[in-house]
Design a binder for these strands. Structure first.
Length: 505
RNA sequence: CGGGCUGUAGCGCAGCCUGGCUAGCGCGCUACCUUGGGGUGGUAGAGGUCGUGGGUUCAAAUCCCGCCAGCCCGACCA
């Protein structure tokens, strides 16, 4: 390398945002593409992040009364056919299993499928149908309700165009599936789980989100109502980070989920489903990472801090390493956000600079450098990943203030992301403004446009042609701060609510 | 599924148009030296059925045909 790059990641966000995203994932060692089309390998550092997300969410699911269970990966093809809209929504992207054996192929010398299945199986793209089939058996009486079950699983959707974490053919997620006796209770569940997602995104991931309802065109296939959380990425595009669906009685009717109520009458149950996926990791990257790589919010970071021992000779090495291990033990006795602080020591035989950048790019919140000079002062050299601030800090002070420092980082990441969203959100009330808002100011850099537009609209059909033209979508109709009626920005027709319009992933 | 492009070392590429010695370069990797609060510099080295099958030719990474795979642009999407 002849010249030292100014940033660890090249290109930078402003130079080429999509490429920057790929490079961050690569340099942070989160995941990589696999030989299997559209499927990713999640590497240990990325998977540890996912495990922390799982842990946080799972706790919240349990606290709201849910239990985990597991249902089959394969779904008989006929199950998918039961709910008309559901078929239409997923049929185009299903992986289908048609055989159950391989045999030698004399023509190619390789293998070929043999023994066709009587009924093809699909690899679950989502589990409403298989879980519903079980629920139909489990639900007899109002006393069996509600059923509140979640499953952690992988699903497959054969997408045309894939991007690591954001859209992969196979992805990891959780899907909650609940059954209720009344419409009101199912609706309450739908909103409750949306709140859980919003809480998790904002308070654990430091990703500010807008909670809102999807329009009919953007709804989950087969749902009566879909609500979602939407986040703004640093290129000002929107990312749907989680969805919760009120399925009404659609699936109950299609799958015969019925029960006898207290009056002895048979009624169809009301169901919900809700999910978040490894896409959250994409949201995390595009919210917090910078031109030097990943930035992990402390609450879900696989390690809170990394200690880098610095020494020249064996004598110093012994002393420095011992000091580092003691420091780690001391730090790990601290707790942050209900979890013991996790500290890594990187004593690999590599040059200091190389190690430093490795951890910068991985996004470890705190970097602690310890060399002979520090030993002499009983202090460490401390650097914050989010701000880049660095200074010498007495050891005891670091130990005492570790928790509050991590909290500061967590909070400042959230504040920074919220500020970006607020700066790039505008209330727009006429077509001309709307058009210019979504037209890139710089033709060479089409990623940069206005951001989120808050606009009244009366009818999805009316605005759709314009949205198609500008490649803008209706993200959601926000649930909060949305009481003022107005007129549609395009047609002038009266409209009750504003919607968030944005370009989206 | 339509339109465009690309398959040469682990990664990124040059060579192909105009066929010709042992197929090159950068990064990475290995060893040794050097350096040491910052991604150092040097020396030596390992590593390739040129995607695949056929054809043309004295001779094919290079020309021709088929096939396969991947990427990009559309339609589709957590």
């Amino acid at each position: 390398m002849n010249k030292k790059a100014k940033t660890a990641i090249s290109p930078t966000r402003t130079e080429d945002y999509p490429e920057w995203y790929q490079q961050v994932i690569k340099h942070a060692d989160l995941a990589e593409t696999s030989p299997v089309r559209g499927c990713m390998v999640i590497k240990p550092w990325g998977y540890a992040l996912w495990e922390n997300m799982q842990r946080g969410l799972d706790k919240m699911f349990k606290e709201t009364g849910h239990r985990n269970a597991y249902f089959p990966l394969f779904i008989p093809m006929s199950y998918l056919e039961k709910e008309a809209e559901h078929v239409e929504g997923f049929a185009k992207e299903c992986a289908v299993v048609t055989h159950h054996r391989l045999e030698p192929d004399p023509e190619t010398g390789g293998l070929r499928p043999a023994s066709p299945l009587e009924e093809p199986l699909i690899v679950r793209p989502t589990s409403e149908t298989i879980i519903g089939a079980m629920y139909a058996k489990w639900v007899q009486s109002y006393r069996d309700l509600p059923i509140l079950i979640n499953q952690w699983a992988n699903v497959v959707r054969w997408e045309m165009r894939t991007r690591l974490f954001l859209r992969t053919a196979e992805f990891l997620w959780q899907e909650g599936h609940t059954v209720h006796a009344t419409r009101e209770e199912a609706l309450e569940e739908t909103y409750k789980m949306l709140d859980v997602y919003a809480d998790f995104a904002e308070n654990h991931m430091a990703v500010p989100v807008i909670r809102g309802e999807k329009t009919a065109g953007e709804r989950f296939p087969g749902a009566d109502m879909t609500v979602s959380i939407e986040a703004m990425m640093q290129d000002r595009k929107a990312l749907q980070a989680g969805t919760s669906h009120f399925l009404g009685q659609n699936f109950a009717k299609a799958q015969d989920i019925t029960f006898q109520d207290q009056n002895g009458e048979v009624a169809h149950a009301w169901t919900t489903s809700w999910g978040v996926s490894t896409r959250l990791i994409g949201a995390l990257i595009m919210t917090h990472a910078d031109d030097d790589g990943m930035v992990m919010p402390p609450k879900i970071a696989p390690a809170h801090a990394v200690i880098l021992p610095i020494y020249r000779d064996d004598e110093a090495r012994t002393a420095v390493l011992e000091y580092c291990h003691q420091l780690r033990d001391q730090l790990q006795q601290q707790a942050y956000a209900g979890r013991a602080v996790e500290v890594e020591i990187d004593d690999r035989d590599l040059r200091g600079g190389e190690k430093k950048w490795h951890h910068v790019k991985r996004g470890v919140p705190l970097r602690i450098e310890v060399g002979p000079k520090d030993l002499a002062k009983d202090a460490v050299f401390l650097a914050r990943r989010d701000t880049g601030e660095q200074s010498s800090v007495p050891r005891q002070q670091l130990v005492d203030q570790l928790g509050s420092m991590l909290e500061q980082i967590q909070q400042s990441l959230f504040d920074r992301a919220l500020e970006l969203r607020q700066q790039h959100t505008a209330e727009i009330s006429n077509e001309a403004d709307f058009r210019s808002y979504f037209t890139p100011q710089n033709a060479q850099d089409p990623e940069i446009h206005g951001g989120f537009a808050l606009s009244h609209f009366a009818s999805e059909q009316d605005v759709q042609p314009l949205l198609d033209e500008l490649k803008v979508t209706i993200r959601c109709i926000p649930l909060e701060d949305n009481e003022q009626p107005g007129t549609c920005f395009l047609t002038g027709k009266p409209a009750e609510k504003r919607a968030v319009f944005a370009k989206a992933y």
